[in-house]
Amino acid sequence: MSNAIPYLPRGVRTHYDRIRGRNVLLGPERALMLDEIGHAIIAELDGKRTETQIAADLATRYGAPVEAVSVDVAEFLTDLADKRLVERRDP
């Protein structure tokens, strides 16, 4: 699990698509439709907490094993980082 602090870079934001009834992550020239868990993770990116802290908070909220949540959060954010929709910085 990464000790980095994930955040949405300039030009990336979430938007509620009323037509689809889904939350969308909007970036330069691309858009990704988020499911509820995906949106919950993105909503936690405050630019202050580490991935470890975010995963622990989500595990508590959803009553899920922190190990499983940590793996899912790391994979999800890495996928978005590869698409340049999430960035990470050292604490």
Binding site: L32, M33, L34, D35, E36, I37, F76, D79
Partner: peptide, 12 residues
């Protein structure tokens, strides 16, 4: 809602 693997699907 229970925890499930998060998904982000690209809209083309």
């Amino acid at each position: 809602m229970a925890w499930t693997k998060p998904k982000a699907v690209e809209i083309n």
